[in-house]
């Protein structure tokens, strides 16, 4: 049962709406697609979550 839960990493991909800079981070409770999240280090404007997905587990 534990194996089932540990096989994947869930990540949120943030994107800056202006410069298109992408940032990959671990999924946090409350994240959803198109939610404003963090600030773009280049443009200093809020980024939004473009995608949330599971990728193979990397310890």
């Amino acid at each position: 049962m534990e194996e089932l839960e540990r096989r994947e990493n869930i990540v949120s991909i943030e994107e800056c709406p202006r410069c298109g800079l992408k940032n990959k981070r671990k999924f946090q409770q409350g994240d959803y697609v198109l939610k404003q999240s963090g600030k773009c280090p280049k443009c200093n404007i809020p980024m939004y979550i473009k995608l949330i997905y599971a990728e193979p587990f990397k310890p």
Binding site: F27, D31, I52
Partner: peptide, 16 residues
């Protein structure tokens, strides 16, 4: 059934 169980985790955390 395995997929359904893993879906529970996604549902609990509101993941797509």
């Amino acid at each position: 059934a395995e997929a359904l169980v893993s879906a529970m985790k996604a549902l609990e955390e509101g993941q797509p």
